[in-house]
């Protein structure tokens, strides 16, 4: 099981390595960079949703914390970008822990509501704390990411950096799924009561995964900040949180590969739809609706059905 994941990961890495040879247009590279950044968040989120069975409508806030903390640290306090990225991830992890402790005791829509409320509060702080965040007009001139002597100032370099991290992120995610924590979570997903009787500390595992997924989002946020070099609160609002959940479910939430697929399609689709101008909203909505109606397990479910017509979607959960 884990071996075929490694194989897929290797193929993905190889293909990614050659993509820039085929595509040199910075527009396409730029889109793929955003796909990579979004994928990092959704990989973490799919661990939370698919494996821990929890929903979060506040992941844009962790993404935003990563972005704003790195941006503020490296712009106003001249912290080197890599240190800023790590500090941001650490701080976001702490915030996730503090939020997760009371929140993950909640279930279902209360959890959704609590994460949504948290996301909204963070968004308001980005808007209202003008002295630090620049408020609604945002703040710019964030330096480029620098690791050792290498400055990541071109889209090509950034492409390799982001997707390198996505591959690493996938590697970790696959390992988490096949670790003790992953097994415990799967048991929990099937039946929380059963898991409890087996002596699995469900809340603790849930919090662990919640914090891990927040760190994924924070790193993605830092990468966003050093790529765009300008931040404004609009990017980190509730609509982005909802889009992230949509990406995970659309791709197939029982597999990190589904998250990757959903993210790629839903990030690239709006760009392909530029050709039909204003009608893009309608087509985008219709595609989303039709896929979910006919393939409730997401795109991965669709692929599973195409290749093995008799396989049950449940099988994909393993």
């Amino acid at each position: 099981m884990i071996k075929s994941n490694y194989l897929a990961l290797l193929i993905l890495a190889l293909v990614l390595a050659f993509i820039p040879l085929a595509i040199s247009n910075v527009y396409y590279l730029g889109i793929l960079i955003f796909v990579g950044i979004n994928s990092l968040i959704t990989i973490g989120l799919s661990l939370l949703m698919g494996y821990a069975g929890q929903i979060s409508l506040g992941h844009a806030a962790f993404f935003g914390l990563g972005a704003y903390l790195s941006g503020v640290l490296s712009t106003r306090l001249a912290v080197p970008p890599v240190s800023a990225l790590l500090l941001a991830a650490l701080f976001t992890a702490l915030v996730a822990l503090l939020i997760g402790l009371p929140t993950l005791r909640l279930k279902g829509h209360y959890l959704a509501m609590a994460t949504l409320g948290f996301g909204q509060i963070v968004y308001i702080v980005f808007n209202a704390w003008v002295e630090m965040t620049g408020g609604p007009s945002g703040f710019g001139n964030i330096p480029r990411l620098r690791i050792g002597g290498v400055v990541f100032d071109t889209d090509l370099k950034y492409f390799y950096l982001v997707w390198g991290l996505v591959v690493v992120g996938l590697f970790f995610a696959v390992n988490i799924i096949h670790s003790r924590v992953g097994r415990a979570l799967r048991t929990m997903h099937t039946s929380e009561v059963a898991a409890g009787t087996l002596g699995i500390n469900t809340v603790r595992y849930k919090i662990q995964i919640f914090v891990i997924s927040a760190v994924y989002a924070s790193v993605a946020g830092s990468l966003y900040a050093y790529f765009v070099t300008f931040l404004s609160p609009g990017t980190f609002g509730i609509s982005f949180s909802i889009l992230l959940v949509t990406m995970v479910v659309f791709g197939g939430r029982f597999s990190v590969w589904g998250a990757l697929l959903g993210t790629a399609v839903l990030s690239i689709l709006p760009e392909s739809l530029r050709i039909i101008k204003d009608y893009d909203v309608l087509v985008y909505g219709a595609v989303l609706l039709l896929v979910m109606i006919f393939f409730p397990e997401g795109l991965v479910g669709l692929i599973g059905r195409v290749f093995r017509p008799r396989s049950l979607p449940e099988k994909l959960r393993t």
């Binding site: 959940v245 479910v249 659309f250 939430r253 909203v281 985008y284 909505g285 609706l289 979910m292």
Partner: peptide, 18 residues
């Protein structure tokens, strides 16, 4: 599943708004 239904209503809201 419930989550699929939620995403469907989100898609519906995008369509209705459009």
């Amino acid at each position: 599943s419930v989550i699929t239904l939620i995403i469907i209503t989100i898609a519906g809201s995008i369509l209705l708004k459009g």
